[in-house]
Nucleic acid binder design. Sequence first.
DNA 1: ATAATAAAAGATAAAAATATCTTTTATTAT
DNA 2: ATAATAAAAGATATTTTTATCTTTTATTAT
Lengths: 145, 145
Amino acid sequence: MGMFSKSCEYALRAVFYIASNTLKGERVGIKQIAENINSPEAFLGKILQQLTRAGIVQSMKGPNGGFFMLPEQLKRPLADVVAVVDGNQIFVGCGLGLTYCSETNPCPLHNEFKKVRNELSYMLHNTQIGEFNEQLLTGKSTLNK
Amino acid sequence: MGMFSKSCEYALRAVFYIASNTLKGERVGIKQIAENINSPEAFLGKILQQLTRAGIVQSMKGPNGGFFMLPEQLKRPLADVVAVVDGNQIFVGCGLGLTYCSETNPCPLHNEFKKVRNELSYMLHNTQIGEFNEQLLTGKSTLNK
DNA sequence: ATAATAAAAGATAAAAATATCTTTTATTAT
DNA sequence: ATAATAAAAGATATTTTTATCTTTTATTAT
Ligand code: FES
Ligand code: FES
């Protein structure tokens, strides 16, 4: 597996897709999202439930329902999405899997690992969900295949 | 989960332990390793099999048998251990889980993610397994709890 | 040679992650 | 009010990862 769980990858792709459609003023349904980010529909539904409960995205039931985001939600960092789906071990956990990362009783890789972990953490905390809307809408970047 | 699979975490802790004991001129058995890196014994056995087949460590059966490393094996990078256990997706894979990472058809996070991924890759390629032997033997760093 | 030791190999089990299917609830349009 | 739509919730299934158990093979000491 990669840096994130599969659920988390779907989650990130989904919020990017929802964000860019929100910019166009459109709500999007699970089916449409799943098609556009290349994910299993029902499984994505479960992930979107989590994201909705956590206040990462908004949802509406019924005709013309679907998922969308509020302006302030577009500004939230990717770290929030990752934390909701994968927890915060990626931000604070020991690289060698010790029960917790410690300065006073570190694993051998601590100093080296911490640097990388902090780079990732910084990047995710300083990147906003809505930041890629334009490049997505103009097709400069993609969410499927 | 963290950056690596649990198997990979055990693998890294195990090679560090074997390396530091090799420096002391000692072979170590699965049981001893498992106790000292706090891992399930039988499961660790399977992982050590992989590492032996891949030439990361040496093994000897029978009395006074156990695991140890050759001088050149002590110099190999952590990246080799990670690649054997987790594959190379962590080094080359797309952060959002697209089938492959591409410069020409990138995901939105590509540039930001690539930086972090390359930092991790660089670190793992430029850190040797045997590099922490001294601090491990002097108790300055730990592999359990 | 024989017994003891320890890893290798193979088989099986349990837990977690991923995926699907069915029923219920909220919302909208008629 | 009724029917249609779409997400929420709940139940179930599949796959992968993690873990354990048993048998075999190699090595050493007696
Ligand atoms: S103790 Fe392992 S990364 Fe800090
Ligand atoms: S395409 Fe996603 S990280 Fe390169």
